[in-house]
């Protein structure tokens, strides 16, 4: 089965000359269907940058990115936006919900972006909230929710558009361990669905256990990759 996203020999340089920062140095990575991929590494190692490159948010300085086999090379900002809208769901560390909208409306935004008719939009948003266990909080505003609940709304929003790739950047970093657990469980469940690929940047050890593949990145390079099978093989 073809990969959802293929990153081939991608480099990313911020700035130029003396001040140039090499955030990625020739990274190659595939995001596969039905896979929960965990990305870890020290601060400043390039995890977020890699996620941005994989998610069509940033064009790499060098190298190639393909989504569903389609090269993103030379796409305009609008072209990359269309790819994101079509294939990606994003979950941010800081939730990024709309404070003036209810949770239901926040989720509806993702569907409205995809020109979903109002009735279907409302129904599917309710279903998405239900799936993250917040069916009864549709009328609440983000300020009335806990951090964990907010992140579940954000996940509902990311999923409502039925993306086939979900990218999450430290989704549990701001959460207490109990809330974090729930988010981890959700992400694991999401990856198991419909051949979806999920990439999570995290230091959360609970994801470690559930991950199909763990990629460790240091100083802009992938330094270690470990699959579930590797771990099972080395298990006593």
């Amino acid at each position: 089965m073809s990969a959802l996203v293929e990153i081939a020999d991608a480099s990313m340089v911020y700035g130029a000359g003396e001040a140039a920062v090499h955030a990625l140095r020739g990274v190659s990575l595939e995001i596969r269907r039905g896979e929960l991929l965990m990305l870890m590494g020290p601060s400043g190692s390039g995890k977020t940058t890699l996620l941005q490159v994989a998610g069509a948010l940033r064009a790499p300085s060098a190298g190639e990115v393909r989504v569903h086999g389609q090269s993103l090379h030379g796409l305009t900002q609008a072209g990359r936006g269309a790819i994101r809208l079509r294939h990606f769901g994003f979950v941010f560390q800081s939730y990024n919900l709309f404070p003036t909208l209810t949770t239901q409306e926040n989720v509806e935004v993702a569907l409205d972006l995809r020109a979903t008719a109002p009735a279907a939009r409302q129904r599917r948003a309710r279903e998405a909230l239900d799936a993250v266990g917040l069916a009864d909080r549709g009328g609440a505003y983000p300020a009335q929710l806990s951090g964990g609940q907010k992140q579940r709304v954000a996940i509902a929003r990311a999923l409502a558009g039925q993306p086939d790739i979900v990218l999450a950047d430290e989704p549990t970093a701001a959460l207490d361990s109990e809330s974090g657990k729930r988010i981890v469980a959700l992400l694991v469940a999401i990856a198991a669905e419909r051949g979806r690929g999920v990439v999570v940047v995290t230091h959360d050890p609970r994801i470690l256990d559930a991950a199909d593949r763990i990629v460790r990145i240091e100083d802009g390079r992938i330094v270690h990759t470990e699959t579930r099978r590797d771990r099972q093989d080395t298990a006593p």
Partner: peptide
């Protein structure tokens, strides 16, 4: 995600048919 039967939806015809209008209004 399991799809709920549409029949159980509460009737909220008209509410926020134009979501961007709602966002615009709330922003203001």
């Amino acid at each position: 995600m399991d799809a709920r039967p549409a029949a159980s939806e509460p009737p909220d015809r008209g509410r926020g048919a134009d979501l961007r209008l709602l966002i615009a209004w709330r922003n203001l």
